[in-house]
């Protein structure tokens, strides 16, 4: 299992580097930018107040943008989860299916490593990769406080990332499940990313159309605390997001256990062959 864990991290190193640098620089920039933004004398509340309500709906904390919590919510926790979610979706959709489509899995599974160990070794590799990306992002925010004026403690900043981690495990688990059900990794990551963007849009649209509220209420973003976690994590929501994510992962593991490994290439839509099994 450790071999697969290491191998997964080794294969992800390029994307980990890219995402870490990107999010790290973004965090540093936004943290450093905070005091200058409000020292400039511009009345941002008035500026944003002139924006159409349809746009304002996507950033519900914009009215409090001058406050550290409002600033973080607007510039980090409103849309960044969606963007890192695309990383999680891609990484998990690739986790097994990429090697299968490339024809590599065929040979790997002839080695004395069980499908269970391979699966969980790779999933733990993804979790470690996710932690690295979030850790770099976290560090970028905590390095800045001496120069900025956000005024949060290390723990308060840490709290901000805990619900984000759970949300990303859910997104990753969902992409992994789709990669076991759909013919290709490309479809799995595209569909997950599309649903993620749809959920983000639903957050805003439900603020201006109350008929959408019941739909929004059952989506993952409804249970994502955002900057509210700085004051205290809602552990029920955290457990819910993480639990559903791990549920998707368990279901993916179950399907992988029974999967007929393709020689290479993408698959097709059809009932899994294991449903025909009479012998087992």
């Amino acid at each position: 299992m450790f071999t697969e864990f290491k191998h997964t991290l080794r294969k992800m190193k390029g994307s980990l580097l890219g995402w870490s640098i990107g999010l790290g620089l973004y965090g540093l920039l936004m943290a450093w930018f905070y005091p200058y933004m409000f020292d400039s004398g511009m009345d941002f509340a008035e500026i944003y107040g002139s924006f159409p309500p349809e746009m304002m709906a996507f950033f519900p904390s914009i009215e409090n943008i001058a406050s550290p919590v409002g600033y973080l919510d607007t510039y980090f926790l409103s849309y960044i989860p969606m963007i890192i979610g695309i990383f999680a979706a891609g990484a998990c959709a690739n986790m097994i299916s990429k090697d299968e489509e490339a024809g590599i899995l065929d040979l790997l599974l002839s080695y004395p490593v069980s499908r269970t160990k391979m699966f969980w070794g790779r999933f733990m590799g993804f979790i470690a990769g996710l932690v690295i990306v979030l850790l770099v992002s976290y560090l970028s925010w905590v390095i800045a406080p001496p120069f900025s004026d956000l005024g949060f403690t290390l723990m308060e900043f840490f709290n901000m990332f805990v619900p984000l981690f759970a949300l990303l495990v859910l997104v990753g688990g969902f992409a992994l499940l789709l990669s076991m059900l759909l013919p290709s990794k490309r479809m799995a990551s595209s569909l997950t990313s599309a649903l993620l963007i749809a959920n983000f849009l639903l957050v805003g649209l439900s603020n201006i159309n109350e008929n959408l509220q019941p739909l929004y209420d059952v989506t993952p973003f409804a249970f994502f605390q955002g900057a509210g976690a700085i004051d205290g994590i809602n552990w029920n929501w955290f457990a819910g997001l993480l639990g559903v994510g791990l549920g998707f992962t368990l279901l993916s593991w179950f399907l992988f256990q029974r999967r007929d490994i393709r020689v290479s290439g993408e698959g097709s839509f059809r009932l899994p062959d294991w449903l025909r099994l009479k012998r087992k």
């Binding site: 024809g103 065929d106 004395p112 069980s114 020689v263």
Partner: peptide, 17 residues
């Protein structure tokens, strides 16, 4: 599967690396 594969060396028809 693991016990079996310990004893086996396999070369697939379509080798991908």
């Amino acid at each position: 599967p693991v016990d079996v594969r310990k004893m086996v060396g396999y070369l697939p028809g379509e080798l991908s690396l």
